[in-house]
């Protein structure tokens, strides 16, 4: 059964068309990589799916219910968590507070504490820095914190926007393996936006390739990786 269904989605920023008739589906428990160069519309796609941006036309449903035109704070309550582009943490708060805010809406303190514990198990470096200001974290730690915050909301669908941006290869590897780990252990559905095409497609089940706002290919991640035409045209290697 398809969990996330995007159909003919068109989104504009004023006069600029960022996505044109994009359609794809993600199955329950599947990890999909969304690949594309700068300006391809990846961020716009995620922002539309999480309620931060309004669509112009088309549809998007999660578990058979419309998600377009909804508020992000309501979509979180339906299990959709978005880690937005560029280390989405609040630098003025402590590491712990950044995690806690993900669970405030559930009004279940012990559940939140448990989720925080699990996030810290996944990213032990956060555990040593709980009372530090998030401002003092390194780029990689911030990314871990941003993902941790999303996990505290207990998502069913995780939207990740370029978690590897600006990070060293070793840290990227750690974060990617954590993402893969989450998908399998928590049966999460994941949409992973990346420019890091190969690494992303290697951990993904399926992939979607965008170019200038249009979908140019989608399907099994292994097949996309092996397609020589795609390789030279869009995957950049």
């Amino acid at each position: 059964m398809s969990s996330l269904v995007v159909n003919n989605l068109t989104v504009s920023h004023g006069a600029i068309r960022a996505l044109t008739n994009v359609s794809f589906e993600v199955q329950q428990g599947e990890l999909t990589a969304v690949i594309g160069a700068n300006g391809a519309g990846k961020t716009t796609l995620l922002r539309t799916l999480s309620g931060l941006k309004d669509a112009e036309s088309g549809s998007a449903t999660w578990r058979d219910r419309n998600i377009l035109g909804k508020r992000p704070e309501d979509l979180v309550r339906r299990g959709i968590s978005h880690v937005s582009e560029g280390k989405s943490v609040i630098p003025e708060l402590t590491v712990r507070e950044n995690l806690v805010i993900g669970g405030l809406w559930r009004r279940d303190k012990s559940g939140t504490e448990k989720a925080i514990k699990e996030a810290v198990e996944l990213f032990p470096r956060l555990g040593e820095r709980m009372s530090q200001s998030a401002n003092t974290l390194s780029g990689g730690e911030r990314q871990m914190l941003a993902i941790g915050r999303a996990l505290v909301s207990r998502p069913k669908l995780l939207l990740l926007d370029e978690p590897s941006l600006g990070l060293a290869p070793l840290i990227i590897e750690q974060i990617f393996s954590a993402i893969k780990n989450l998908q399998t252990s928590m049966n999460l559905t994941v949409v992973l936006v990346e420019q890091n095409a190969t690494s992303a497609l290697e951990i993904a089940d399926t992939g979607v390739i965008l170019n200038l706002g249009e979908l140019v290919a989608s399907g099994n991640a292994k097949d996309l990786l092996a397609d020589p035409a795609l390789k030279s045209a869009y995957l950049g290697y």
Partner: peptide
């Protein structure tokens, strides 16, 4: 308090606060 944390989060980064589920 949780209310105070929500107030601070919403004040500093309203967008992230909303993504975390806070009704800004």
């Amino acid at each position: 308090t949780d209310l105070g944390l929500s107030l601070r989060a919403a004040a500093f980064q309203p967008e992230i606060a909303r993504l975390a589920g806070i009704r800004v």
